[in-house]
Every structure is written in C-alpha cells, then in structure tokens.
Design a protein around this nucleic acid. Structure first.
Lengths: 133, 133
DNA sequence: CTGGCTGCAAATCTTTTGCATCCTG
DNA sequence: CAGGATGCAAAAGATTTGCAGCCAG
C-alpha cells in the first residue's frame, strides 16, 4: 500500500479496496465488476465512488481505460505498454507482453502526431474454440 | 444501389438511406449520428430501425463495428482490413490503408487462434495539436 | 478545520426489446 | 400474401451529475 501514497490523492478505504482489486487482476474488469467486488467489503459503496475513483486514477495514469469491449469500458492496472488478445466469442481479454515497433510509412498522415500504438489480436480463446467443435 | 441487391435482404428506402450515408462517409459515425442524418430524409425513422439495420449489415459483413470510442459503438462501411489513427483529444478516427504483418512470437499463447489483428495509433490530429499550443 | 471524497438518487446516454402495423418480394 | 421490416414506446444497461454530509490530511 505504500506505493499508493505517492499518487497524490487522499487515501480512503474504498479507494484502497478498488486499487487492491485492480492490482491483483488480469481480467480487465468493467466498472460494474469492480463495483460488485468492492461492495462485498463495503456494503455502502456506490457507483459514483467507483467512477470517481476510476476517473481520478486514469488522470494520474495509474490505470488504463480500455475501449475493447463493445458496450462497456474496461480497466487495466497494468500501465506498461502492452497489447491484447481478444476472444471474439466471450470477449475475454488476455495481456500479451510483446512490443511491436510500428511506424506510419514515410509521408503518410505526417500532420498526425503519434503518441503510442495498441495492437489487438482478435480470435478464439481455447475454451470457446472447444465449444465450437 | 445495384450492388446492395446481392446482400440478400429486403431493400427498404430506410435501409438504402442508411447504406448511402455510410458509403460516402469516412468519419466512422455512431448509431446516433446515422439516426440524426437519416431522420432528415425520413422523419418517421426510429432508432430501432437504425440498430436493426446495423446489426443485420454487421452479420452480412457489409459493415464493421468499431470498438474504439469509449462510450459508444462506431460503424465503418469499409470492410477491407485496415487500421486507424485515433485522436486522443477529439476522438476523431482516421483510416490508414497500411497492412502490418504481425504474428505472435513462437510458443506464446499457442492455444489462442488468431483470426485478425487491428492496430490503433493514438495521438493528436492536426486540429487538436493547434488548439493545444 | 477544510477541501476533497462518499453515498444516494436522479438524470443522461446508448442500446435493446415487444408488439402492432406496414410493405417488399 | 407472408414474412421480414418499420415505428413507437418502454426497458435495460452504462455512465454522469448534483448535492448534502463525512473524514483524511
């Protein structure tokens, strides 16, 4: 928990619970997932707090907001650049820690300043592949 | 319009209007954008029709659903594989017609069947870059 | 003590659904 | 003429907002 201190925010029990849940989680939970989980520890927890906290953490670059699920936002506590495998059947998202060095071809859209890139591999996860047999 | 015939669907004026709007549009409109536009020609148009049509066209692989905008789905009539520049400030989406041949490193997630990939370059479009000066 | 945070409720926005009616093929 | 499509309204799901009261620093 010491590491959270230098975020520069007030540390409330609710925030710690949200951070803890995100930290040990590779499943890229949605706001609703987070709410449901933290509700177990804090029965008074409200959605507003979850969204407030997520918005604040996003500003501080402590978490990433992923726009990979149609219909809802997902959150990732892993802020190091990495990419994703996405199952087209169950929408599961799997981290892959490979970097691709991609550049726009010379002269193409040279007015656009590229800050980073994100690669998504869409396909079938092992479980869904079996179901389709 | 002849090309629409072989989609294998009933062709209604509303559908033609939606297809026409998508066809001449590189802006990756949302369902609401489409609704607002087609409403001008068909004052009785309803959201249900827009969503029904989009769902049907997606099934027929006539359009792509893009999950690149936090909060809403966007639609792209360009179904050829291509990638996107995304402005982190105004959420504008720009097509780039470059293909990247990417593969997962040998042995990594070999249980996952990759069907396709999608590369997003996040950055600042010319207009937003100017505003930030 | 004070400003930021929480909790609740209401509002907003996007998308989905049920159903009666309409119209393409 | 039949089955699929439309239009309307209501519902569902995700997110945002306003505000009073609370608590970490």
């Amino acid at each position: 928990m010491k590491k959270y201190r230098d975020i520069g925010l007030k540390l409330t029990p609710q925030r710690l619970a949200i951070l803890d849940y995100l930290e040990g989680n590779k499943c890229h939970p949605s706001a609703d997932d987070i709410y449901k989980e933290v509700l177990k520890k804090f029965p008074t927890m409200s959605f507003a707090t979850v969204y407030n906290t997520l918005a604040t953490l996003k500003e501080k670059n402590t978490i990433r907001e992923l726009t990979i699920d149609p219909g809802k936002k997902r959150y990732d506590s892993n802020t190091e650049p990495h990419n994703h495998l996405i199952c087209v059947s169950c929408n599961q998202v799997i981290d892959i820690h490979v970097q691709f060095n991609l550049d726009l071809p010379q002269g193409m859209n040279k007015d656009f300043t590229v800050l980073r890139n994100h690669v998504e591999f869409h396909g079938l996860c092992p479980l869904c592949k079996e179901k389709q047999l």
